[in-house]
Every structure is written in C-alpha cells, then in structure tokens.
C-alpha cells in the first residue's frame, strides 16, 4: 500500500480575479496505490479546487503558479501532469483518473438514455470498439454497479437518486482507471442509500483495486471509509494522518474543532436535555 500513485508537491492554485484568491497553497500529498484518501474541510476550503487543479480541470481565471504533479503509472512510467499537451491530457483523463461528481441529479444529461451516456465514454476513449462491443461493455458496467442491463434505455429521471449515483460510478469505472476522485458522492442521499452506495464502492475497490480520493465535509463518514485523511483549511492541508490517528490523536487545533462540530450518535451526551 506504500507504492505512490500520485505525488503532489508544493501545489498552488490562484484565482486571478480583481482581488486574487489563493485557493490552494503549497499543498504536498501523496496518493498511494489501492488506498482511500479522504479530503475533508468546510465549504470554500479549497478541496474541490485541489482535486480539479491536479487534473488541470480548472479554467481561467484559475492559474497554477507553482508546484508539481507526478503520476506514477501501473506500467512503471512517471508522467508530469502539469507538462502534458492538451491531446495527451485528454487521453489521460478518465483513462487513468476519473471522477464521480457532486450531485448525481444534475450531472447526468436529462435528454439522453443512461446507456447512450455510458457508451459515449467508449466512443471517445476507445474509438476502435465496434457498436456491438460498446453495447456489451455498457451492459457489463450496468451489471457491475447492480443497476441491471434492463435499464440501458432508461432516462435519468426514471431512476432513483441512488441508481443515478450508481450510473455515475459506472461511468467513472468504464475505462478501469487507477484513481477515482469522488466529490461529495453521497451528500444528497439519505442515510440508507448512502450506506448502500458506500458498500458498493468498497466492493468495487476490492474487485478492481483502484485508489479513491473521497472529498466530503462529512467527517464521521470519512473516518469510517478512509485509510488516511487530509484536513484542509483555507487552501492548506493542516493535518494528514491515518483515520484512527485523526480520530484518537488529532494534532491540529482545527482538526479538533472539526471533530467537535459533529454530535455523536451513540456517545455520552455533551449536553443534557
């Protein structure tokens, strides 16, 4: 588990607006092969900007004033992500790193069937595939995420929130990436559906072995699913450690504040009623 997959060094992102905003400041972290790295922090702390930034998914006025991002591929080659050409970057994204976006409700195209949207991935990234091969691959994906092939012609509005999120996960896994970035994938779901999706993700990781960067502000959830957790505040990572250490031995004052901002489900009450 200590083999690095993605090394980020002194990475910064600045929004060059009238009053420039340093959204990410000198962040260094390593995502290891096969691990779940949790990224926690409140709204506006820069966690999504960091995740998008390392894949160069940000548009102007965002600029990357400094740092390096190195991808250590399974085939043994190292790739400098900040130096890739536009074409190379396009081929790299989704093939090596894919994403599950926040808000499954709005991330899918409402006027295309889920089958067509999944087939799109192969059309773009695997142009050599025949139509029949694409359909077979889409059917397989729908089965893998337990939506079932019968839904291939369904439109997003015909599916429940949990099913739509499964479609997003299927899309992210289509090309068997080595890293999946999940940005608040369960935030809009109720607790039972959330748990179901988390179990699904765990099972799929066991089957395919990809690493996950899981972004959320839900620290109790992150503590359960992550191997390590990075706590972000105002663009910086203030603490990064294993989940048990974050829980039992938080070092930074802010981590303690964040931990105390959640009521405990089963612990002794801090207030009496």
């Amino acid at each position: 588990m200590n083999e690095p997959l993605l090394s980020v060094r002194d990475f910064s992102v600045r929004y060059e607006t009238a009053a420039p905003v340093d959204a990410v400041r000198d962040v260094s972290l390593t995502v290891h092969r096969g691990e779940v790295l949790g990224l926690a922090g409140e709204s506006g702390c820069g966690k999504t900007t960091l995740a998008y930034g390392v894949q160069r998914l940000l548009k102007p006025p965002a600029v990357i004033p400094g740092g390096s991002v190195t991808w250590h591929d399974a085939d043994g080659t190292d790739v400098d992500l900040l130096a890739l050409s536009a074409d190379a970057l396009r081929a790299f994204r989704w093939d090596k790193i894919s994403m599950v976006f926040q808000g499954a409700m709005s991330a899918l195209n409402p006027v295309a069937t889920v089958g067509a949207q999944l087939a799109d991935v192969f059309e773009v990234h695997r142009p050599g595939m025949s139509r029949a091969e694409r359909t077979a691959a889409v059917v397989e994906l729908l089965e893998i995420v337990k939506v079932g092939a019968a839904r291939i012609k369904s439109y997003p509005h015909e599916l429940s929130g949990g099913m739509r999120q499964r479609i997003m996960i299927a899309m992210a896994l289509a090309l068997r990436p080595q890293l999946v970035v999940m940005d608040e994938p369960t935030t809009a779901l109720d607790v039972l559906v959330q748990r179901e999706i988390l179990r699904e993700i765990t099972g799929l990781r066991e089957a395919f072995g990809f690493s996950v960067v899981f972004i959320t502000h839900d620290l109790p959830l992150l503590l359960e699913i992550s191997d390590r957790i990075a706590i972000m505040r105002a663009g910086r990572i203030v603490e990064i450690d294993t989940a048990p250490n974050i829980w039992f031995r938080p070092q930074h004052e802010y981590t303690r504040t964040l931990l105390s901002s959640f009521p405990r489900l089963t612990a002794e009450r801090q207030v009496t009623r």
């Binding site: 607790v191 039972l192 748990r195 839900d218 503590l223 359960e224 829980w247 489900l265 089963t266």
Partner: peptide, 26 residues
Amino acid sequence: DDVILRPQHPYTRELREASPDPERFF
C-alpha cells in the same frame, strides 16, 4: 436516548447501523 441507544424496531436499527458513527466504528 432509548430510540437511538436501545432501538426496538428493526428499521430503527437499520437506520442506526447506516449512520456514520466513528465511536462505534473504531
């Protein structure tokens, strides 16, 4: 406290099990 700590109905238990709870988890 009774409902959350000593749930009687299977559905309540299911909700409780599904809710993140670092205390119990660790």
